[in-house]
Design a protein around this nucleic acid. Structure first.
Lengths: 245, 245
DNA sequence: ACAAAAGTGTTCGATATACACCCATGA
DNA sequence: TCATGGGTGTATATCGAACACTTTTGT
């Protein structure tokens, strides 16, 4: 492949997943070895990121990068912020990595942040020689480059959207229970909701549609399953003027 | 000045202002003349934009560009989206402009969009040889490059924020009347509010504080003036779970 | 039979909406 | 004195918050 890369523009993707307990982010291991002795010099974690090519736009670059790094295809990726601090790449590990890589990096790389929300946690661990895995977002730090900053900004963005848009459904399986939904909202928003009031609220949302199907194989009363209908949502949506106390 | 510019990264700033009637955007005239005959080849309008320098981060670049292009200083600029379509610069006018300019443009420029909200419409018309002016956003088109797209995205972003954050105060003078505020909200949100209900709502917002001052020189009952207190807002803010019908 | 999560209703206070008239000023 | 926008209150419907017990399944 001889597509030309743009030296100083990259895309980094924050891929978030919910496993019914907490939110995880998909990270790729980065291990620098001494080429002679094969000794590990350092090993850390990065978001799925890479430079863009000259012949692709930003959205395409994001999709390609996610596919190359993680094997995931046809996932919805949204741009959320761009990062261009002067010291983004100046950590010693990053400098060693850049020197050892066969890509000619520019001194100055601006990266465009994308995020994606996934229901599932199933994943091939190895993609094109990359070791990728889910890591709980709580307490994560020490990521490569400025990826801590990018991750925090993505989470902030997500939390904000959660209050006003039915974005949560992207993190849930196609068929989900009201309890799973409540746990997700409580986790993201850091609140607790009263079960009855939460369910009352949900039952008013015409776009959360009950299925003729129940949970199976659980050691308690099986829950009703629901799905999200974007069609109904788009048709019934109204905004509200609610920014005050 | 011999700072080095980054060839393929720029910042474009959407500077919006409210004049008590409608929303305007600050645009810079771009006129290409035949260097020999001094004949105008074309003339159109651009957002305030320029390449970034190698030694500045994105926020600093945005502030510098706004200052150079419009003379405005110390205004709050927020990043909102980045644009990297392959055909951003391919319009014949843009190509002629690029060829004629003494800056060596790259084929591929990604631009980071910033916006700013201002109360006032007072402005020097001429800045560093740039002719800058306010233009009503309704019906504007034919801007240079992809600046129509950038402007639309900024407005969309603004409208969205308006519903959930007290961002409107940035577009109002320090001292404003409730009617001015209502007109602004009606303009941006494309709705009408009942005067009494709107005022009732505002009077519940502890962070909209009445001043001991009234309008002067108007040919009707002079209105009470108010100011916005960010302090009180930050202290009393609560989020609400309101994304449904 | 027991453990574990599902599911269900009512009351009360707060908020949203609808609606019409008098007031203060400059011209 | 008139034109112009400023300013005010009440009634009704809807929504949010608080609160405890019964149901269904697997083991």
């Amino acid at each position: 492949m001889d597509r030309k890369i743009v030296q100083n523009i990259s895309v980094d993707c924050v891929i978030l997943g919910f496993d019914s307990v907490e939110i995880n982010v998909l990270l790729v291991e980065r291990t620098l070895k001494n080429p002679d002795t094969d000794e590990t010099i350092f090993s850390d974690l990065t978001l799925a990121g890479y430079h863009i090519f000259e012949d692709e736009d930003l959205d395409s670059a994001a999709a390609r990068i996610v596919k190359d790094r993680t094997g995931l295809e046809n996932i919805s990726l949204k741009q959320f912020y761009s990062f261009g601090a002067l010291d983004r790449l100046l950590h010693p590990n990053d400098q060693s990595w850049i020197k050892a890589s066969n890509v000619i990096f520019s001194d100055r790389v601006v990266t465009i942040g994308y995020y994606s929300l996934l229901p599932s946690t199933n994943l091939e661990i190895m993609q094109n020689g990359n070791i990728v895995n889910w890591y709980p977002i709580n307490g994560l730090k020490g990521l490569a480059y400025d990826h801590d900053v990018i991750l925090q900004k993505a989470i902030e963005h997500l939390r904000h959207k959660f209050w006003h848009e039915p974005i949560g459904f992207e993190l849930l399986p196609n068929k989900f229970t009201i309890s799973q939904m409540q746990k997700l909202y409580e986790f993201i928003l850091g609140t607790r909701f009263d079960k009855r009031n939460f369910r009352k609220k949900i039952s008013q949302m015409s776009y959360v549609v009950p299925l003729k199907e129940k949970q199976k194989g659980v050691a308690h009363k099986p829950a009703q399953l629901f799905m999200f209908s974007k069609d109904i949502y788009d048709k019934t949506r109204k905004e509200r003027f609610d920014f005050f106390v």
